[in-house]
């Protein structure tokens, strides 16, 4: 946090933010941090997912504050609307929506070690960023972000010209992810022969030729 205070001192040379800007940032940052701490510390996974929504919403507000309205909308729709709902669906589907004892930790050293390492890394990063001035790159390499055109137009033109190949690769990635999810979500006895049910699977495969398929399917279900 010392880095942040130093950043405030150097900000006097830039255009001064209005009180409304500072207020929006403070509220959104409080939302983000409270949600993040809630995710880490809540005992119930459902509460953790709801806290995650709070964090994502705060990040979306920070996107809007930086004049990035399209990504803020995508953040709310895709993250809060799709990904967290998927999380909640899996939590309910598995029936793990009960409290767990987070005080229990089998490895005694792990928790203090993790906290110490994370604190060290955070302090180091903040100090390093403050010393180096955070950015050292060349400005507007991939095109300007601020112009008289709208944010969506700039983003769309960049995605479909400069970043066309990564965009197509993303499409392939999504198809692979869907296929992978379908393969993973199938019944284990039908897909991957495990070390425990390997003999059963081979038996059911041999019996499949003798009996009718519907009967085998009934028997293979656990």
């Amino acid at each position: 946090m010392t880095g942040l205070l130093g950043g405030l001192a150097t900000a006097s040379t830039a255009v001064h933010p209005t009180a409304a800007d500072v207020g929006v940032f403070a509220v959104a940052a409080a939302l983000v941090l409270a949600g993040a701490i809630g995710v880490v510390s809540s005992r119930n996974p459902v509460h953790a997912a709801l806290m995650l929504i709070m964090t994502l919403f705060g990040v979306a507000v920070l996107f809007v504050a930086q004049h990035d309205s399209f990504l803020a909308a995508v953040q709310v729709i895709v993250y809060a609307g799709a990904i967290v709902v998927l999380f909640l669906f899996v939590i309910m589907f598995l029936g793990v929506d009960r409290r767990e004892n987070i005080a229990l930790e089998p490895l005694r050293v792990q928790r203090p070690l993790a906290i110490g390492l994370v604190l060290l890394a955070t302090t180091g990063l903040l100090l390093l960023g403050q010393i180096s001035g955070w950015t050292t790159g060349a400005p507007h390499v991939a095109g300007r972000a601020v112009s008289n055109q709208s944010n969506v137009a700039l983003l769309g033109r960049s995605v479909y010209t400069t970043y066309l190949f990564p965009f197509e690769a993303t499409a392939a990635l999504l198809v692979i992810a869907v296929v992978g999810a379908v393969v993973l979500a199938r019944r284990p006895s039908e897909t991957s022969p495990s070390e425990t049910s390997q003999s059963e699977t081979s038996q059911s495969e041999t019996s499949q030729s003798e009996t009718s398929p519907s009967e085998t399917e009934e028997g293979a279900r656990p």
């Binding site: 950015t135 060349a138 507007h140 991939a142 095109g143 300007r144 972000a145 995605v159």
Partner: peptide, 8 residues
């Protein structure tokens, strides 16, 4: 950096 690449 006034660069659209970050947003993409």
């Amino acid at each position: 950096l006034d660069d659209i690449g970050g947003q993409v």
